[in-house]
């Protein structure tokens, strides 16, 4: 062993010590981030389960002091809003992604579209609320389910575009070429070969997107507004689970706080179930 080597050996102890310190710091960062997650989930679980029952899902909100209030209307409202958003966001998003993946992958136009999609993804949701307020609520002179649905739809579009494009690109070119070589038309190839091949991933993406917008609150404040009664009318204000949670959370009543927790449990079950299923599905996809 050379002289230099023995000098290194001495130095090595302190290097090893720094190494352990840094690894410990990394481990602690990870644990630190998991604490809020567990705290949130356990509090929602414990506080939420107390107020959650069948009535909660089927009943209208009750005035303070009256038992048996629920968030049935908000649940229906969220379903209506999310359906509207899906109706708008899925076709626009999937068609855009098809263009980007199948017709023109490189160039100024597709880069612009991708840049725009990324920008839409980054817009603060409250700003989307302002926009929809200006183009729908003002002209219609009323808050409405339609406005809420459009706001969520705008937020869904870029999520669907980016996700679907990624999934379409995973379809091997050899498949497209095989179909073209059989004499299929390009649109036929896309509709009956490419899309079905990627469908699992696309649905996953869409579910993740829907999970994301279903929990949105801020844009709904300026569009759907909330409604304490049953409503499925598109031109009327409509309730939504996150809106109701917000209103109850900032109220001064303990009873409503409990209901907010129960509402959160409901919301998080929807969101988490959608995202867990989606993520498990994509993982399976990658393995295959």
């Amino acid at each position: 062993m050379s002289e230099l080597q023995s000098q290194y050996a001495k130095r090595y102890k302190s290097r090893k010590f720094i190494n352990y310190i840094m690894i410990t710091i990394m481990l602690l960062s990870t644990l630190l981030a998991l604490i809020p997650l567990f705290s949130i989930l356990t509090h929602i679980g414990i506080s939420g389960i107390k107020a959650l029952n069948l009535q909660f899902i089927t009943n209208l909100p009750a005035p303070v002091g009256e038992p048996g209030g629920g968030m049935g209307n908000a649940l229906v409202g969220t379903l209506v809003l999310v359906s509207l958003a899906a109706l708008m966001g899925i076709p626009v998003g999937v068609l855009t992604a098809i263009y980007l993946s199948e017709y023109q992958q490189v160039g100024l136009f597709p880069s612009t579209v991708r840049f725009v999609a990324d920008s839409l993804l980054g817009i603060p949701s409250i700003v989307v609320g302002i926009f929809v307020y200006l183009i729908i609520v003002l002209p219609m002179k009323s808050f409405s389910a339609l406005a809420g649905g459009v706001a969520l739809g705008i937020m869904l579009i870029p999520i669907v575009i980016r996700g679907t494009e990624g999934m379409l690109k995973m379809v091997p070119d050899s498949l497209r070429e095989a179909a073209l070589a059989l004499g299929m038309r390009k649109w036929r190839v896309i509709v009956s070969i490419v899309l079905p091949t990627a469908i699992k991933g696309i649905i996953t993406t869409i579910m993740l997107g829907i999970a994301r917008v279903a929990g949105e609150t801020a844009p709904l404040l300026l569009t759907a507004f909330g409604n304490h009664f049953w409503s499925t009318k598109l031109d009327q204000p409509i309730g939504a689970l996150p809106l109701q949670i917000f209103n109850y959370a900032i109220s001064p009543f303990d009873e409503w706080h409990n209901q907010a927790w129960a509402g959160s449990l409901l919301l998080i079950l929807v969101v988490l179930i959608l995202s867990i299923i989606a993520r498990l599905a994509t993982r399976g996809n990658k393995l295959n």
Binding site: I44, E216, F246, A249, S264, L267, V271
Partner: peptide
Amino acid sequence: LAAIPSVI
């Protein structure tokens, strides 16, 4: 953590 809605 990213999937939890901000109202929650």
